[in-house]
């Protein structure tokens, strides 16, 4: 039985040649949930994923992994007990390329304490990954599929998919999502999906972490973010008066009409007040909210 792991980062910073990729990050990923790690290209998602998996040493602060059969909190870097339980699947593959698929499968089976061989066989069939072909001869889609199979069959208590399914076509991605949800229902574990395809995965997530330029923008249950943004449209002066107390994410003007996107909970009293002032209030989708939270400031 896999037991889900809890992840914490404390004041975590990672720098490349002095430039911060992660900047004093404090996070907690609750055990047994599917977390989305969202951010634009270069926001630090991959660096965070690599640091959580012990592929990289923090420059400052630390990563702590605890729970399950680990006992007390431990740092993953150069720690075989932790890293055997943390599976990071990246698009690059991190595998020797000149060997047949079955060698990579055998290696994972030997290294992963919760490896499920039946599941691996079933998934290789479903994704039609040929066992005897050399990995370097596989198409990009099949390489991605192999990564996904290894990630799922490892049944690691912390499993991180870092854009590892981007090379797959839509039917294969959908198969991945179905297999992920089915196996997660059977063996709940902590899963992190790092992606910028927000609309495609958002329904499968329970929590999201949004990064921008190496900093934490927000961490929240995903359903709480849906409906947290609102667009306010109406005469410019009335819009400005109403949005005075809110965090304004974006503004647009067309003649005397103004549209502002704000963050915050609009209770019924505020809604009534807005309607009375002749303003139109609309919900903002998660994808748009994500764009506003991480976008270039206008």
């Amino acid at each position: 039985m896999t037991a889900a792991l809890t992840v914490r980062t404390e004041d975590l910073s990672v720098r490349f040649a002095g430039v911060p990729a992660l900047d004093r990050l404090d996070l907690r990923l609750a055990p047994g949930k599917i977390h989305g790690l969202l951010g634009r290209n270069g926001s630090g998602k991959s660096t965070l994923a690599a640091t959580l998996a012990g592929f990289r040493r923090p420059d400052e602060g630390r990563v702590l992994i605890e729970g399950g059969d680990l006992g007390t909190a431990q740092e993953p870097y150069e720690n075989a007990v932790v890293t055997s339980r943390v599976c990071l699947i990246r698009e690059s593959g991190d595998r020797p390329d000149a060997v047949p698929v079955k060698h990579a499968v055998g290696l994972a089976a030997a290294l992963r304490p919760y490896w499920d061989a039946d599941l691996a066989g079933d998934l290789l069939d479903r994704f039609e990954v040929p066992l005897n072909k050399k990995i370097q001869k596989l198409s990009r889609g099949k390489k991605s599929a192999l990564g996904v199979v290894l990630g799922l069959a490892s049944r690691a208590p912390l499993t991180i998919f870092d854009e590892s399914y981007l090379g797959m076509d839509v039917p294969s991605r959908n198969l991945f999502y179905d297999m992920l949800l089915a196996d997660y229902a059977e063996v709940p574990r902590t899963i992190v999906l790092s992606t910028h395809l927000v609309s495609e995965v958002s329904a499968m997530l329970e929590e999201v972490v949004i990064l921008d330029q190496g900093r934490l923008v927000t961490q929240s249950p995903v359903d709480a973010l849906r409906g947290r943004g609102a667009s306010i449209v109406g005469p410019a002066a009335a819009v400005d008066e109403f949005t005075g107390g809110f965090t304004v994410l974006a503004e647009e003007r067309l003649g005397g009409t103004k549209s502002s996107t704000v963050l915050g909970d609009l209770d019924p009293a505020l809604l009534a007040q807005a309607t009375a002032a002749g303003l139109e209030i609309g919900p903002v989708g998660l994808q748009d909210l994500f764009v506003h939270l991480t976008g270039v400031k206008s």
Partner: peptide, 17 residues
């Protein structure tokens, strides 16, 4: 909730809620 989550491809905790 698990059938529902699988069918609609959503998080089981969301379906349970």
């Amino acid at each position: 909730t698990n059938q529902y989550a699988a069918f609609y491809r959503i998080n089981p905790a969301t379906a349970a809620k």
